[in-house]
Design a protein around this nucleic acid. Structure first.
Length: 711
DNA sequence: TCAATCCGTATC
DNA sequence: ATACGGATTGAC
C-alpha cells in the first residue's frame, strides 16, 4: 500500500513537473495530445509555439491528426503491434496512411509503414517523432494492411513478415517515372466462350457482372481453355466497374494467361506481376496496379497481395500447385491469401483447376463455394481414353523395341499409333539421367563415401557422381555387400528420351524439364518427354500421352503425395485429344490403385472428396488445422507447453504428433486441432512465441501452419 | 534522504 | 541493442 501511493505520488509529481515547466519539448506534446480531446491539444500547440520562438528546434507538429500509427519492420512476436509517432509539421503532407517511413525504435532506425493518422495516442509515455517519410507513395493500402494482419493471424506470424511479402522493395527511379495516363481503348465485346460447357457458369458470371460476390470451385473439363475463362471472368468484374486479381502457378501459365487477357480484355488493361520480373519491372507493375492504371492484375503467388482498386474478383488456377506455397515466413499459401481477401473485401472468388484440391472440396462441402463443373456427358465428350498398364503384365520380351524403351507393350503400341497423327507426350517423374542408383546385387542405395549423398549418373558414360557434393565415384563398391555393379533405381527423363530414340528411330524427340522448359510444341508427330509440370502445350493437342513410373509419384513420403500425383496426371491428360479424336492416355502402374482410377474415370471431384474424408480421419488439413513446430528440442517443448496451456483455457483439444528428429540440432512436432480451433491455435502459438521472444528464451522455433509438405 | 548502481522490461 | 523505471544499496 505505501509503495503504491508512493509510486503514484512520484508519477504525479513527475508529470506535474514536466507539464508545469514546459521545458521538455517532446514529452509535453505527447501528454497534451494523449490526454485531451480538444482544449489540451490547443494548449499543447500554444506551448509549442512559445517554445519554438525561443529556440528554433524542434519544428511544430502537424495540426490535423498529429499522431501516426506505424507498423515497424521488426519481426519479433512481442512487438507485433502498431506504435505511435508524432508527425512533424513538415512531414504532415507526406506522412499519409500506407507510406514508408523511418522511425527511431528501441534505439535504432527502422523502417515501417504508416497505418493511419489519428488525433491522439492511447500510449501514456512520450512519443518520438517520425524521422523521415521515405516516400509519400501509399504502398500499403488500408485494405492490404488489413489483409496482412489477417494473414499474420492465420499463420501465427508477424505483420512485418507479411508486409514484406505484400509490398515489393522500393525502386526510387521507377517511382519518379511519369505515370502516363493514356485513355484506354474500348475493350473488345464481352464473350463467354470458355464457359459454355458449365451449366451454372452463366449465373455465376451474371452475378459477377452485377457486382455481387459469387464464390465457386471450378473444375475444368478436359482440354478447357482456362486462361480465356479466367480473362472472361475478369471481364465480367470489369463490367461491374470492379477490378480483378488472377493467379497462375508459374511463369509459363502466366504467359498463357497474359495472352488470353490481351485477347479478351484488350492491351494495356491489365498488368502482370511476378517475382521473376526483377526488382525494377516488378515495382513498376506494382505501382501501375496501385495507381489504378491497371484494373486487372495477373500474376504468380507474389501477386496475391497486389493492391487492386475496388477488388471484385480473386481467382486462382490449379490451387494445389506447390509453387503457391510461400517459402518465407509465415509461409502463407496464395489460395488462403485470396480466400481471406475475398472474405474481408466482399469480393467474388474462383478456385479453378483440372484436378480438384482437398481444400477446394472443403470449400464446397462447407457451402462456402458453389460448384462449376461440366456434367458427365460433357466430360466424356472431351476426355481422352485412359488405360492403365501394369508393369508386370508387360510383353517386353516379345518386342525388342518396347523393351528398349522399357515400355509395356500396350504403351508402346499406343505411342506408335499416336505418332501417326500428332505429338505424343511422355511424362517421366524424375529429371536427369539415372537420378538414383542402387547395388545390382543387394539393392542398397549407392552412397557417396565422403558425404553420404546418393550417387547418380548424369550421362550414359563416365563414372557415377554424388548428387550432393558432386564427387565422382569411379571404383564404387557397395557398402553392404561389396558388389561393384550398379543399377538404376529410377530412370530419368533424359535417359528415357535416349531409350525412346532407339525404340522409335526417325521420330523427333523433344525434352522439357528442369531449366529447359518448352512452352509449346508444333502439331507434328514427335515424342515429347517432359517432367511433371513442364509439359508443353500442343496446339492441336497430343495424340496420346504415356505417364510412366506412376508408383514413383505415389511413393513420396508425404500426406499429399497422392493428391499431388493425381493433379499432375490430370494436368498431363488434359493436354490430350478427346477419345473421339483418338486421344489416348496410358498410365504405367498398378491398375487398381485409387489415384490411377481417378484418372481412368476422370473423376477429380470424387477423388478430392475421398482425400478430404481421409484427411478428416487423419486430423490433417484441410479437415483440421495443423501447426508444424521445428527447432531445438527444449525450445519446441517449451512452446508446446505454453500452447497447450492456452488451448486448455479455450477448451480446444490438440492432437500432438512427435517430436521426431528433424536434423542434427532440431526436432519437429505437429499439433493438430479441429478446424474450428484454427484461430485459437494460431493465437496460442503467437502468444507463446511472443512470450518466448520477450523473455529472450534460447532457441528459435519455426512455426508453419498448414505446411505445404506433410511428411 | 539521496545518489549510485543493478536488474528487469519495454521498445511509441 | 538501449533506455528506462523501479528496487536496492550504501553513505551521509
Amino acid at each position: 500500500m505505501p509503495e503504491i501511493s508512493g509510486n503514484t505520488l512520484r508519477r504525479a509529481r513527475d508529470l506535474g513537473h514536466v507539464a508545469g515547466a514546459g521545458a521538455v519539448g517532446v514529452a509535453d506534446y505527447s501528454l497534451g495530445v494523449t490526454r485531451s480531446e480538444d482544449g489540451g491539444q490547443q494548449l499543447t500547440l500554444l506551448r509549442e509555439t512559445v517554445r519554438r520562438s525561443r529556440t528554433k528546434e524542434p519544428p511544430g507538429l502537424a495540426t490535423d491528426r498529429p499522431v501516426a500509427r506505424v507498423a515497424v519492420d521488426v519481426s519479433l512476436a512481442h512487438l507485433d503491434r502498431p506504435f505511435d509517432y508524432l508527425v512533424p509539421a513538415d512531414l504532415d503532407e507526406l506522412a499519409r496512411p500506407g507510406c514508408r517511413v523511418k522511425v527511431r525504435f528501441a534505439g535504432k532506425d527502422v523502417g515501417g509503414f504508416v497505418l493511419e493518422r489519428v488525433d491522439a495516442s492511447q500510449h501514456d509515455g512520450k512519443l518520438s517523432r517520425l524521422r523521415k517519410v521515405v516516400s509519400a507513395e501509399q504502398v500499403l493500402s488500408p485494405q492490404v494492411a488489413e489483409l496482412c494482419r489477417a494473414v499474420a493471424d492465420r499463420y501465427a506470424g508477424v505483420f512485418a513478415d507479411v508486409s514484406r511479402l505484400a509490398v515489393p522493395p522500393r525502386h526510387a527511379k521507377v517511382e519518379a517515372e511519369a505515370c502516363s495516363i493514356v485513355p484506354l481503348p474500348d475493350p473488345p465485346p464481352a464473350t463467354r466462350k470458355a464457359w459454355a460447357d458449365y451449366p451454372h457458369a452463366a449465373s455465376y458470371l451474371d452475378a459477377l457482372q452485377r457486382g455481387q460476390q459469387p464464390r465457386a470451385v471450378w473444375t475444368a473439363v478436359p482440354g478447357a481453355d482456362w486462361p480465356v475463362a479466367f480473362a472472361e471472368a475478369a471481364r465480367a468484374a470489369l463490367d461491374a466497374g470492379r477490378g480483378a486479381l488472377l493467379l497462375a502457378p508459374d511463369a509459363r501459365d502466366l504467359t498463357r494467361l497474359a495472352a488470353a487477357c490481351r485477347e479478351v480484355l484488350g492491351k494495356d488493361t491489365f498488368v502482370s506481376l511476378s517475382a521473376d520480373l526483377g526488382p525494377t519491372a516488378r515495382y513498376r507493375a506494382f505501382l501501375s496496379a496501385l495507381r489504378g492504371r491497371a484494373r486487372v492484375v495477373i500474376g504468380t503467388r507474389a501477386a496475391a497481395f497486389a493492391p487492386v482498386a475496388d477488388l471484385g474478383l480473386v481467382a486462382i488456377w490449379d490451387d494445389a500447385d506447390d509453387s503457391y506455397a510461400e517459402p518465407r515466413a509465415p509461409y502463407p499459401h496464395a489460395r488462403e491469401v485470396l480466400l481471406l481477401r475475398a472474405h474481408r473485401q466482399h469480393c467474388a472468388a474462383l478456385v479453378g483447376g483440372t484436378a480438384r484440391s482437398a481444400e477446394a472440396a472443403a470449400l464446397l462441402e462447407s457451402g462456402w463455394a458453389h460448384e462449376l463443373a461440366g456434367d458427365r456427358a460433357t466430360v466424356r465428350k472431351y476426355a481422352p481414353a485412359v488405360h492403365v498398364s501394369g508393369e508386370s503384365d508387360t510383353d517386353l520380351a516379345r518386342d525388342g523395341a518396347a523393351r528398349a524403351a522399357r515400355l509395356p507393350h500396350r504403351a508402346f503400341e499406343i505411342a506408335r499409333e499416336g505418332l501417326k497423327t500428332g505429338p505424343v507426350l511422355v511424362q517421366v517423374p524424375r529429371a536427369g539421367y539415372q537420378p538414383s542408383l542402387v547395388c545390382q546385387n543387394c539393392r542398397a542405395p549407392a552412397r557417396c563415401t565422403v558425404c553420404g549423398g546418393g550417387l547418380r549418373r548424369t550421362g550414359g558414360d563416365g563414372p557415377p557422381a554424388c548428387g550432393v557434393c558432386g564427387r565422382e565415384a569411379p571404383g564404387h563398391r557397395c557398402a553392404e555387400c561389396g558388389d561393384q555393379r550398379l543399377r538404376a533405381a529410377v530412370v530419368g527423363a533424359r535417359r528415357t528420351a535416349e531409350e525412346l530414340g532407339r525404340a522409335f528411330p526417325g521420330t523427333p524427340i523433344r525434352t522439357s524439364g528442369g531449366d529447359a522448359v518448352l512452352d509449346t510444341v508444333p502439331d507434328k508427330p514427335a515424342l515429347v518427354v517432359a517432367t511433371p509440370g513442364a509439359e508443353p502445350v500442343a496446339n492441336g493437342r497430343y495424340a496420346a500421352a504415356l505417364l510412366l513410373d506412376t508408383w514413383l509419384l505415389l511413393a513420396r513420403p508425404d500426406l499429399r503425395s497422392a493428391e499431388e500425383a493425381v493433379r499432375r496426371w490430370f494436368n498431363a491428360a488434359t493436354l490430350v485429344r478427346a477419345a473421339s479424336g483418338g486421344g489416348t492416355v496410358v498410365m504405367v502402374g498398378e491398375p487398381s490403385a485409387a489415384p490411377l482410377q481417378a484418372i481412368v474415370r476422370w473423376s477429380p471431384d470424387g477423388y478430392a472428396a475421398r482425400e478430404l474424408t481421409e484427411r478428416q480421419a487423419a486430423a490433417m488439413p484441410p479437415a483440421a488445422r495443423v501447426a508444424e513446430l521445428t527447432g531445438p528440442a527444449e525450445a519446441v517443448e517449451d512452446l508446446l507447453t505454453r500452447v497447450g496451456q492456452t488451448l486448455r483455457g479455450l477448451r480446444i483439444a490438440p492432437r500432438v504428433l512427435g517430436p521426431v528428429p528433424h536434423d542434427d540440432e532440431s526436432v519437429r512436432t505437429l499439433v493438430s486441432v479441429p478446424r474450428s480451433g484454427g484461430a485459437g491455435l494460431a493465437g496460442a502459438l503467437r502468444d507463446g512465441q511472443a512470450t518466448r521472444s520477450a523473455k529472450k528464451l534460447p532457441g528459435t522455433v519455426r512455426v508453419r501452419v498448414d505446411p505445404a509438405a506433410l511428411g
